[in-house]
Design a protein around this nucleic acid. Structure first.
Length: 111
DNA sequence: CTTTTGACGGGGG
DNA sequence: TCCCCCGCCAAAA
């Protein structure tokens, strides 16, 4: 494998890739799955290096509030919102409506 | 090498 | 309920 820059990055990439279409997850959920409860910031940071490149559906990763905090990193347009809406996710003002309904927890769904 | 920041989360006032 | 602070880990300056 290639190990981009750190072991954590690779782990985050893997989990993000496993997010099913039409579902979303939070930074904290991924961090918790990796064993780091409070290092949700690292998850976002990892995605920062893959925001443009890679095939990471990072647009499916939001914060615990269901807000698209990193939409600015996807492009000047609301590319992130558009993609999510196309997947059937309802979004209002950068915020996922039925967040809980579309929430995908790797710690529970994934083993 | 040290310091600051960062796509966050949770707790406290 | 809203606002502020702390924590945690890693990378960039």
């Amino acid at each position: 494998m290639k190990q981009e820059k750190g072991q954590f990055f690779s782990d985050v990439f893997e989990v993000v890739k496993l997010i099913p279409t039409g579902k979303v997850t939070s930074y904290g959920a991924i961090a918790r799955y990796l064993g780091k409860k409070n290092n949700a910031r690292m998850v976002g940071w990892a995605l920062n290096g893959a925001s443009t490149e890679k095939q990471l559906p990072a647009h499916r990763v939001v914060n615990s509030q269901g807000i698209l905090t990193g939409k600015a990193y996807f492009g000047e347009n609301n590319e992130m919102i558009s993609k999510l809406q196309l997947e059937g996710i309802k979004i209002t003002k950068n915020k996922i409506e039925n967040f809980k309904a579309v929430f995908w927890d790797p710690s529970s769904e994934l083993i």
